[in-house]
Structure formats: structure tokens, C-alpha cells
Design a protein around this nucleic acid. Structure first.
Length: 741
RNA sequence: GACCGCUUAGCUCAGUUGGCUAGAGCAUUUCAUUGACAUUGAAAAGGUCAGUGGUUCAAGUCCACUAGCGGUCACCA
């Protein structure tokens, strides 16, 4: 044995485990299973330091496996809809191309090729980190089986009246070309102005003067004495001269601005609500590419982007003497979480899920701790968010994802707007009624279609075709979370026809779901809602939230700061065990994790300490070839007794800490026990003693290896394999050995 | 605007339901060492546990307020 532990043998150990079948559980109905579904990493990128925290799951999984529970850790990768398409579009841009250069199917195929090339990277890295996942059950979010389940659930939701289509205000990013849910909008503080504009008999104050062109009313508080008598009258909209009513609405505060609000129902959520209430007209002045359309009336405004339009409108108001004052004003503006540009609230036909019925059940199971959220403070966050939840827009105008399984017969819907690339490679956008003889060309080059809200649609291609041959499938895809929200039951083999797999029957509900708190609402909440709705059962009993991995100074890792730590280069340099231990030792549940080179080096030293302590024990064994290994019933030596007592204590505390998800405490205690109590004190004390030390020495070492194995599986298994020929024993692999009691 | 978290040794952090002279790693100082390990050992130094007030026999731990930092959610013009 070398004087220094070389982690280069870790790959061989992993192969040993995998070949042994230890990762694959045997269903045994007399035993209680333990199961974790891996939060699937994006298939399009290598792992980052955060992914290395899968170690928390590996700790639980290895612990339960050693307890003898049939233990399943099911791995997979995520197609990550918008994320991946965004990354791919960057590649396209580098080649001087864009998504508009391709028809839908071609673009999809290109992204799929790209993802397939990169998928294995993440998988191999997870293996390298020692994660004991059952690769025989590996899944991908675009597996055909998963797709079919997602589609079946969509159909079920349609049948149950939970899915509807509506043209509401949505968060739209004109650059990314898609709608987003509220969660995907980042609010940023913006220093702007409040513009006071003369509307004739009254004055309004606004942060968005450009949307004036889409105003369809002015609202005041009905009890405001200044404006009371104006309610019901009509005033003239500046610049374009349209007549709009003055309405009274309680939501208007008399104190803010002038107490009068311009109402732009197509570009403001509050105004949208007001317009629905008062039956106002909707005038959408921006198209989905972000440019002003013909509704702005004046030709010089057409084609301008919002910021350009603002400048133009403000200038024109000033010229006309209608801008009474401009004051500085700081407020929050929604921005696209992906590209960072301002979100344009805009009315657009989208698919929605009625969320209240699902949310109520989710609230119930969390309140009653049927799904226990850990650490507990996240429970409050969850319930607060869930209480005020809004309907979920599930359609995204991107190609990379599950295409919504809805078909339109074009001849029934002549006003469907289709965008396609024609035979000459030209981008065309026109209504079907103008394209009637071009079905083949449209279908072949189809990019997107935009169906008016009342379009007739079918939930199967065959049905749509019964009416006639000119059929197109919806081009929107599902929000990624609509698909990944179904991940637990889908990966285990829930079937729409009720003919569920043995895996599903045995392993569902799963035991623990571990993920970072930043996707508590995005993912955990959706899984709970979907799981309860679809299967009638919770998807997991415990939602364990871990924290963010930060750099050594406690700062967020980012490429621009250059402080990212690549987990794989750490593994190359110091071994997976050092990284794993550094990620968990001394970390309190749910608190941030500062990961530094120093910390990793310290843990590498610990791994080496284990190596050398084991070397010492083996040298001792060589010294006493005739030694027996059975522990005597009664220990006569005080230091023997002391180390055995401490061992008993550490077994108890480690077990209880793992059960309570206190991995930081458990690993810290083990570190102290092994290095201080065992090495520095006990091993030193044995150096001048005889053969009688062998049973205690080997017992404590083997037990320590077992306790440490969930945290640092490679070194412990490596040492165990070296030790085994010398001490014999029934248990051939540490990974499948029994947990000390 | 609402809610949440953090503030403990030079640095990064532990400290479970309040209970021994407040701990670890790294860094620092001194010494040791051909003997399992220099990726080592022994020892030392280092903290009014953010501040103020309160509850208690007892507070880093519970309560209130203050200050600083960080975060999450949110349709106000």
C-alpha cells in the first residue's frame, strides 16, 4: 500500500459496485422501501458545484441500503425547455443564424442532436462523484413513455375542466418570443419617471406614456370629489383623438399621482382586470415581436419598440404642450429571467391550468405534514405562495419541449395565423384564409401558428382529420415544469389506464425529494399538486431543501466573477470523497455552503488519514498473523473500553443525525471521532501492546468505515477491499454491508 | 410593500428542545518527528456569541426593539 492515498482507483470501485448490482433494489413486499427520484440535471451542460450536492441524496440512499431497506435512487436528465433552447440559440447566433431561419421540425431536431451529444456528460460525471444511482432505470424527460403520460394527464385535465384557453394578460418576452409564468419574471428596481399628461378635463400620471396609444378609458376613484362628475363622460385621448370613457373604480387611489389612471387593458394586468369588470375595449398596440402595430394609428409610430415609442410619444406630447410635468420615480419592473430584458405584459392566447383545485389539496397535505417540508421554515413560504397562487399559463412559444397535443382543422379556423418558411426559404406570416391552397408548403415549413381564442380544436389528430385533411398541431409547447412536475410518478411507471408498474406500486410515494430551495415553487409545489391530483397520493413524504453552494468567501459563484468551482476538476485533483465531505461537513440544514480549496484540501487530508490509519491496522495484522478477530466479552484494558464506548456513542449519534437530516453534524462528529479519538488517542496507545489489540482495532476500523461509507464511499470501500482478505468475513462489499448498531 | 434568514476566534462556519472552563477546519506561534500518515503529532494564542432591554436559578440559545447584510414573494398608476 502506498504511503499516500491515490484516488485514481475510484473508477474501479464504481465499476465494482455497479457490476455487483448493489444499485438495483429487489422488490420485497415484506420490507419497507426507501426511494428517491433524482432531480434531473439539465441534459445540455456539465455539472456544476450545486449538482455535487446530490451527495446529500447519496448519503441517505447508502445509509438506507445498509439498513437493508430495498433502496431505489432513480436517475434521469432533463430536457430543460427554455433553458436549452436559449443555450442553443446562442450557438446559432455565433454561426450568424437565428431560430427564425429554421422550420419548427428542423430546429427541434437540431436541438435534440445537440442535447443527445451532451447528455452523457452529466451521467458520467454523476458516476464519477460516486452516486449510487440505479442506472438500469435511467430516464429522460423526453422519453416516449414519459411524453405519453404527460399527454394523457393533459387530456385528463381537459376532461376535468382544469385546462382552458384564454386571451389574458401574460408576461411576454418579445426577445425570447414566449410567454412566462409569474415565477419566471424577475422584478428589478428601475429609476424612471412619472409623466403627468393632460387628458383634457383631467390629468393622469403614468410610468408608461407610450401605452397611451392603447388606452380605452381613464379611471378615477368613485368617491373622489374632484372627478366624481366626470364619471360616465367621454374624453378625447391626446395625440390620436380617440374618444374614451371616464370610469369609477375602487382600486384607484386618490392619493397617488393625480388620482386619475389611464387604462390600457392590453398592456397592464391591473388595467386588464378593470377592463373585464367594466366591459372596456381592448386595443393591443404591440405585436409579439415587440413592435408597435397599426393600432397606434399614426404611421410614424408603427414598427417602434416600446422604448422608442416612449421617446416618440413623450416628445410629441411635449410639442403639443400636453406634458405638464415629469418627475423622477423609482419602481419595480418585471424582467425576463432568461435574457434580462423588460417583460411586456400583453394579451395573448395561452393555455392555462385552473390551479385552485390543485393548490387546495397541496395546501392540505403540507399543512398536515403528510408532505413534510424540511427545514420547517420553508413550509411557511410554501403555504403563503400557495394561498395566493394564480392560474398557471402552461404554454410556451418555443419548440424544445412537449408539443401541446391539440390539433386544429385549418378550414374550421380560417383566422389562424401561420408563420412558415416557404419553398424559396422566405419567412411568410399570413392567415390561413389567404393560404388555402398551400397546405403542403405550410405544413412542411411551419414555424408557429397563432390560433384565435375561440378556435375549434381537437385532442387527437384523427378527430381533427375527420373534418378534412388540412390539420396542424398546436405549435406551443408545455412549460418545462408541467412535464417535470409529473416526474415522480411518471418515472416509476404510473400508467394512464391504471395498469401501473410494480415499481410504481412499490416505491410510490417516494421517501424523500431533495433539491435546492430556489425551485420550491417551480418544481416541488408543482410535483405535489400534480402528484396528488393524478395519483391521489403525495409524490414524496419529505421535501428536503438544501442550500446554495457559494465560494470560499461566501459569495455566489458565477462565471463572470470567475469564482466557479468545477466539481470534476476537484475530483481529478483530490478525489470525489474529499469534495463530498467538504460539501457536507459542518453545514447546518438549509444554510449556505461555502466551498473553498482549503476546505477541500482539509478533507482530502482526512481521507488520507483514513488510508494511513488503515495501513497501520494492516501492518499490525501482519505483525500478529495468528490473531483472532472476535471481540472478547469483557474488556480489561481501559483504553480499549474507552474507544469501544466512544464507538457506541458515535454509532448512535450518526444514525440519529442521518435520520434527522443533520448530515453536517453527523460528518463533523465522525471526523472528530476518527481522527482524534481513534487515531490520535487510541492508535497511539496500542503501539506498545501485544496481540490482544487486534480484535478492538479491526472492529473499530471496520465499524468506522461503515459509518463513514455514506459520506466518503470510495476510500472506505477501497480500504475494506484491502482489509477483507486479512480478516475474512461474510460481507464482500461495504456498499451492501450492514449498518452498525 | 409583505415575509424569511444571517450577524459566534483573523477567515469560513458548527453549536438539537436554554444547563459543564463557547467548538471545528483553515491561517498564526512554539516544539517534536528516519517509527501508519509532513496530506503528521504535541501544545499555545485567539471570542463583552451585532447592540439594547426583558423572561429565568441559568440565555450564544427564548421574547421585544434597534442596526447592518443577504434572500424570497408581490398586478399598484
Amino acid at each position: 500500500m502506498d504511503k499516500v492515498y491515490q484516488p485514481s482507483g475510484e473508477n474501479k470501485i464504481y465499476e465494482l459496485w455497479e457490476k455487483s448490482g448493489a444499485f438495483t433494489p429487489t422488490i420485497d413486499k415484506s420490507k419497507k422501501p426507501f426511494s428517491i427520484i433524482l432531480p434531473p440535471p439539465n441534459a445540455n451542460e456539465p455539472l456544476h458545484a450545486g449538482h455535487a450536492l446530490y451527495v446529500v441524496e447519496d448519503i441517505m440512499v447508502r445509509y438506507h441500503r445498509m439498513l437493508g431497506d430495498p433502496t431505489l435512487w432513480l436517475p434521469g436528465t432533463d430536457h430543460a425547455g427554455i433553458e436549452t433552447q436559449f443555450v442553443y440559440e446562442k450557438h446559432l447566433k455565433a454561426e450568424g443564424k437565428s431560430r427564425f431561419d429554421f422550420d419548427r421540425d428542423t430546429l427541434y431536431k437540431l436541438i435534440a442532436e445537440y442535447v443527445n451529444k451532451n447528455r452523457d456528460i452529466a451521467v458520467n460525471q454523476m458516476k464519477r462523484l460516486g452516486f449510487s444511482m440505479d442506472w438500469t432505470r435511467e430516464r429522460f424527460t423526453l422519453d416516449e413513455a414519459h411524453n405519453q403520460r404527460v399527454f394523457a394527464v393533459f387530456k385528463k385535465m381537459c376532461d376535468d375542466g382544469l385546462v382552458y384557453r384564454d386571451e389574458k394578460i401574460v408576461n411576454y418576452c418579445t426577445f425570447c418570443g414566449t410567454a412566462f409564468s409569474n415565477l419566471e419574471v424577475v422584478h428589478k428596481t428601475v429609476n424612471s419617471h412619472l409623466w403627468y399628461i393632460n387628458y383634457g378635463p383631467l390629468e393622469v400620471a403614468t410610468t408608461r406614456p407610450e401605452t397611451l396609444l392603447g388606452d380605452t378609458a381613464v379611471a378615477v376613484n368613485p368617491s373622489d370629489p374632484r372627478y366624481k362628475k366626470l364619471i360616465g363622460t367621454t374624453i378625447t385621448l391626446p395625440l390620436i383623438g380617440r374618444q374614451i370613457p371616464v370610469i369609477g373604480d375602487d382600486s384607484v387611489s386618490s392619493e397617488f399621482g393625480t388620482g386619475a389612471v389611464k387604462v390600457t387593458p392590453s398592456h397592464s394586468p391591473e388595467d386588464y382586470d378593470m377592463a373585464k369588470k367594466h366591459g372596456l375595449e381592448f386595443i393591443r398596440i404591440f405585436d409579439y415581436d415587440g413592435k408597435a402595430n397599426s393600432n397606434v394609428v399614426d404611421k410614424k409610430y408603427i414598427g417602434l419598440f416600446p422604448n422608442q415609442l416612449r421617446e416618440a410619444v413623450v416628445a410629441d406630447l411635449e410639442t403639443a404642450g400636453l406634458l405638464t410635468k415629469t418627475v423622477d420615480y423609482t419602481h419595480e419592473v418585471g424582467h425576463c429571467y432568461k435574457c434580462g430584458r423588460p417583460i411586456e405584459p400583453i394579451t395573448a392566447p395561452q393555455w392555462f391550468v385552473k390551479i385552485k383545485p390543485l393548490a387546495e389539496k397541496a395546501i392540505d397535505v403540507v399543512k398536515k405534514d403528510k408532505v413534510k417540508i424540511f427545514p420547517a421554515r420553508f413550509k411557511k413560504d410554501f403555504l403563503t405562495w400557495m394561498k395566493d397562487i394564480r392560474d398557471w399559463p402552461i404554454s410556451r412559444q418555443i419548440v424544445w419541449g412537449h408539443r401541446i397535443p391539440v390539433w386544429y382543422n385549418l378550414d374550421e379556423n380560417p383566422d389562424i395565423l401561420v408563420s412558415y418558411i416557404d419553398a424559396n426559404g422566405k419567412n411568410i406570416s399570413d392567415y390561413w384564409k389567404n393560404l388555402k391552397d398551400k397546405y403542403q408548403e405550410v405544413a412542411l415549413g411551419l414555424q408557429t401558428l397563432l390560433a384565435p381564442i375561440n378556435s375549434k380544436h381537437y385532442l387527437s389528430l384523427d378527430e381533427a382529420k375527420k373534418v378534412g385533411p388540412n390539420v396542424l398541431q398546436e405549435t406551443d409547447t408545455f412549460d418545462t415544469w408541467f412535464s417535470s412536475g409529473q416526474w415522480p410518478y411518471s418515472t416509476l411507471g404510473w400508467e394512464p389506464d391504471g395498469n401501473h408498474s410494480e415499481d410504481f406500486k412499490y416505491f410510490y410515494p417516494t421517501s424523500v425529494l431533495d433539491t435546492m430551495w430556489d425551485i420550491l415553487f417551480f418544481w416541488v409545489a408543482r410535483m405535489i399538486m400534480m402528484g396528488v391530483y393524478v395519483t391521489g397520493e403525495i409524490p414524496f413524504k419529505v421535501a428536503h431543501m438544501h442550500s446554495r453552494v457559494l465560494d470560499g468567501k461566501g459569495q455566489k459563484m458565477s462565471k463572470s466573477k470567475g469564482n466557479t468551482i468545477n466539481p470534476l476538476s476537484i475530483v481529478e485533483a483530490h478525489g470525489a470523497d474529499a469534495l463530498r465531505m467538504a460539501l457536507v461537513i459542518g453545514v447546518a440544514p438549509g444554510s449556505d455552503i461555502a466551498l473553498s480549496e482549503d476546505k477541500i484540501r482539509a478533507q482530502r487530508n482526512f481521507v488520507n488519514k483514513i488510508w494511513n490509519a488503515s495501513r497501520f491496522v494492516m501492518m499490525t495484522l501482519d505483525k500478529f498473523p495468528d490473531a483472532k478477530f472476535d471481540l472478547p466479552k469483557k474488556l480489561t484494558n481501559a483504553s480499549d473500553q474507552e474507544i469501544i464506548d466512544k464507538l457506541t456513542k458515535i454509532i448512535t449519534s450518526t444514525t440519529s443525525n442521518i435520520e434527522k437530516y443533520k448530515f453536517g453534524q453527523a460528518s463533523d462528529d465522525l471526523y472528530q471521532f476518527f481522527w482524534h479519538d481513534f487515531c490520535d488517542v487510541y492508535l497511539e496507545s496500542t503501539k506498545d501492546r501485544g496481540v490482544e489489540i487486534v480484535p478492538v482495532l479491526t472492529h473499530v476500523l471496520v465499524t468506522s468505515l461503515k459509518l463513514l461509507h455514506p459520506f466518503i464511499p470510495y476510500i472506505t470501500e477501497t480500504v475494506y477491499q484491502e482489509l477483507l482478505p486479512k480478516i475474512g468475513g461474510e460481507e464482500k462489499l461495504l456498499i451492501s454491508s450492514s449498518w452498525p448498531r
